[in-house]
Structure formats: C-alpha cells, structure tokens
Computed example of a mutant assay.
Amino acid sequence: MFSTDSNIRECINKSVFMVTVFLLATAARGEWLLMIIYLFKEQIIGPSPTKNSALENRTTEVISESFLERWRLQNLHLMLTMSIVVSFIMFWGIGGVFQYYFYYKRRNQAADWKCQPDKFLTPENEKHEFLLGSANMLLGATVSGFIACYIVNGGYTTLYYNISDRGWLYFLASIPAFYMYIDCLAYYFHRLTHIKWLYINIHKVHHRYHQPTAFSTVAMHPAEFLLHQSYLIIVPFYFPIHVAVYIPTILYVYYYGMMDHSGINMSALWPWQPPSIFHDNHHKEGTIRYFHVNFGFNSYLFDWLHDTLRKEDRVYGEDIFGGKGQQLLSTKKSS
C-alpha cells in the first residue's frame, strides 16, 4: 500500500512538473496569448477568411479607415498590454518557483538531479540570464501581441480546425512533417550560429551560461531569439496545418527546449531524442568542452547525417569550429 501511494504521488508530482514547464516555456516566448487565440479563434471571430474573401473585404473598406484598421490591428494597445503583463507574471512567477525548488531548496542534493552537480552559475551570470531572458520575453510577448491582434481582427491564416477540410491522410502526415521541419531548421540555424564570426559576435552571448538553467533557454542575443521564433510563428501563415497538430507540437518543442537548458538530468522521452545532458554538455566549460558539436535538439538525426555527434577519439574546444573536432594526438601517433 505504501509503495502504491508513493508511486501515485510521484506520478502526480511529475505531471505537475511537466505542466509547470509547459507554462514556463510558453511564457518565456510570450506566445501563450497567440496559442489561446489559435485554440479559440472560431469562437472569437468565426471561421478563418480565405484569401479571396479577405480581398473582397478589403475592397469594401472606406477610404478614411485608420492605420490600425488597415492592418487589422484594432485595440492593439489592449492586446499588447495583456500579452506583456501576463507573460511577465508567468515568466517571473513560474520561473521563480522552478528555480527555488531545484536551485535553492535542493541545492545540497544536486547530485540527485543536476547535470553538473558540482557547478552552478555565478551570481553575475544568474542576474545576466534573468535580465536578458526577460528582455527577450518582452520582445516575444510584443511580437505575439501584434500577431494575436491581427488574427482576432480577421487576419488571414492557413491554420484550419476541421480534419475533413484536408482529410485524415494529410492530417496524420503533417504531424511528423511539422516535427521534422522544426528539428531541421533548429539544427541548421543552431549550427549556423557556430560559424566563427556569428559565434563570437552573436551566439557566444548564450554560451556564457556554462551551467544553464531554465532562464537560459531564452537568454540569447535578440537577433538569435527572433531567428528561432520566426520559423515557428510563420508556419500558420503559409502552410496549411491543423490546430491540433500545430499547438501540441510547438508546446512539446518548447517544453523540451526548456528541459534541455534546465540543468536537470532527465532521460529522453523517445528513443530518437537526446537526454537533457546532451545539450547541457554543449554548454559545459572546463578541461572537456563540447561547444561546437551536438547541435541537434529534438533528435539525433541531423547530427548523425552531418557527422557532428561527439566522438571519443576527438577533442573539442571553444576555438575548434566546424562540428568535427580535432583528432587526438595519441590517435595520430598510433596511426
């Protein structure tokens, strides 16, 4: 009986933890409002307008319309205020609880949960990641506020709600297609930022967090933040995708991205997906550094295809670019 109760409590704790991270992930990117709008769009403004109907509506508008009406941004100030204020409350509130539970309350038990149990961010870097992450969260909330306002006022999107519109085959095929689209661009954009000039001038901002935490997830150069946001946000404007595919996939990717940077040692949920220590090692400093290797997030696939998975017979460092590392001296001599 005791064992059963313990298992139930553990299951509940894990469920609460996952939901908390989901909320923190969407808050960190300021897109909670956008997802709510997508979920309840039909109830709020009715079916999505087609391109033709949107064009017809535009021709009937009066010449004296305001700038905001012309761009379907009526009540923009209300949307932006709601998006930014609630995002800050969620990001600071949930993120603070997350940090308190692990990094303060269980700091002395770091060996039980932390990827790097003997190392923590310096107070300076803790402050830096919090401020930079908050700034990017403000940026993300602002962008999402604009997009949500546009949609609420009848702006066109390709997101659809009825499976029958495109059939079950399209619906089912879009699930792995969208997941691989995200994984592909995440890998190539991440690897792109490890080109020497981009790394030194942009991506190194993110790599100053050698022992990343959940706040590190969005603590990066604003240009890089917008780059990663762009290929996720633009999908419902050019690629027909069902809301039940788009939102859960985005949430899962956000969740896993948060766990990758959390510093918490967690196993992968799926065989093709790396454990959290895979990316934690990517940030790690010391005698062993893996900065320019292991670029993937949601699968091993593209690292495997491009031979950028870390190898035991290679040495890696912050000044060794290219993703291939350098051959160990002992290996060279023996050959």
Rank of each mutant, 00 (worst) to 15 (best):
S3H: 08
S3N: 12
I8V: 15
R9G: 07
N13K: 09
N13M: 05
M18I: 00
T26Q: 01
R29M: 14
L33S: 09
M35Q: 12
I37F: 01
I44H: 04
I45D: 06
S48G: 11
T50E: 05
N52I: 08
L55Q: 15
N57C: 05
R58N: 12
T60C: 02
T60Q: 11
E61M: 13
E61S: 08
L68E: 07
W71F: 15
W71E: 12
L73A: 12
L78V: 11
L80H: 05
F88N: 00
I89P: 04
F91K: 02
F98P: 00
Y104E: 09
K105A: 10
R106I: 00
N108M: 00
N108V: 01
Q109D: 07
Q109N: 06
A110S: 15
Q116S: 08
D118A: 03
E124F: 12
E126Q: 14
E126L: 13
K127P: 02
L138H: 06
V143A: 13
S144F: 00
F146R: 08
I147F: 12
C149A: 15
C149P: 14
I151L: 03
G155W: 04
T158Q: 08
Y161R: 04
N162Y: 12
I163R: 13
R166Q: 07
R166Y: 14
L172A: 10
I175E: 07
I175P: 04
A177F: 09
M180A: 00
Y181C: 11
Y181E: 08
C184L: 15
L185S: 01
Y187H: 07
H190E: 08
R191I: 02
L192W: 12
K196A: 06
K196T: 05
W197N: 10
L198I: 10
I200C: 08
I202P: 04
I202S: 07
R208F: 04
Y209E: 07
T213M: 09
A214W: 00
F215H: 03
T217P: 00
A219C: 00
H221W: 09
P222W: 11
A223S: 12
S230M: 15
S230N: 08
L232E: 09
V235T: 10
V235H: 10
V235R: 06
F237K: 11
Y238E: 05
Y238M: 09
I241Q: 02
Y246F: 15
T249Q: 03
I250F: 12
Y256W: 12
G257A: 03
M258P: 02
M258G: 02
D260E: 10
S262M: 04
A268K: 01
P271W: 04
W272I: 08
I277P: 03
F278M: 06
D280W: 02
H283L: 09
K284M: 15
T287S: 13
I288P: 00
R289V: 14
R289L: 09
Y290C: 03
F291C: 13
V293W: 11
F297E: 11
N298Q: 13
Y300P: 15
W304T: 11
W304N: 05
H306M: 07
D307R: 13
L309S: 01
K311V: 01
K311G: 01
R314W: 01
V315E: 11
D319H: 11
G322C: 05
G323H: 06
K324D: 07
Q326E: 13
Q327S: 10
S330K: 13
K332W: 09
S334H: 09
S334E: 14
